[in-house]
Amino acid sequence: MNFELQVKSELIKQKKTLTDLANEMGVSVAYVSDIVKGNRKAEHYRNKICKILKIKNKRG
């Protein structure tokens, strides 16, 4: 499963939105969306997303 699908699936399971995730991270929704879609490298924030959602950080 790619990162975007993994994140979206986990957000649904946890009844969270991308806005909730962005607020927890202290960044904009657009920035989180770019990271999730793979448009930005931002490895630090990618790791933070994984930690918040309790998912594994897999590339691809």
Rank of each mutant, 00 (worst) to 15 (best):
K37S: 15
V29S: 05
K8A: 05
V36S: 02
E4L: 14
V27L: 08
S9W: 11
E24K: 09
D34M: 02
Q6L: 15
Y31N: 04
K58N: 03
Y31T: 11
T19D: 02
K58H: 05
A22W: 00
K37I: 11
L18I: 13
N39M: 14
R40W: 09
K8F: 10
K13G: 05
V27I: 03
R46F: 08
Q14D: 05
V7L: 10
G26D: 03
L53M: 01
R40I: 02
T19S: 08
T19M: 07
N23E: 09
V27R: 00
K56V: 10
N23P: 06
G26N: 01
G60E: 13
V32K: 00
E10P: 06
N47P: 09
I55R: 03
K51V: 05
I55W: 01
C50T: 05
F3W: 11
R59E: 08
K48S: 11
V7C: 09
N47D: 00
N23V: 08
K37Q: 15
E24C: 02
K16R: 15
V36L: 01
K58W: 04
G60T: 09
G38Q: 07
L21D: 03
A22L: 11
R40Y: 04
H44I: 13
K56P: 05
A30N: 14
F3I: 03
E10H: 10
M25T: 03
G60S: 08
N57H: 01
V7I: 15
K13S: 08
L11R: 10
V7E: 02
F3A: 04
C50D: 12
S9T: 09
D20Y: 14
I52W: 05
Y31Q: 12
K54D: 14
I12K: 15
K54F: 03
V27D: 01
V29L: 05
A30G: 14
I35F: 06
E4T: 12
N23T: 13
R59F: 04
K56F: 08
V36M: 07
E43P: 00
T19E: 01
V27C: 10
V32L: 00
L11Q: 12
Y45V: 01
K37D: 07
L5T: 14
E24L: 11
Q14H: 13
I52N: 02
K16M: 15
E4S: 14
K16A: 01
Y31A: 07
F3P: 00
H44C: 03
I52A: 02
L11A: 11
V32S: 00
K54Q: 10
N39W: 12
Y31H: 15
T17H: 13
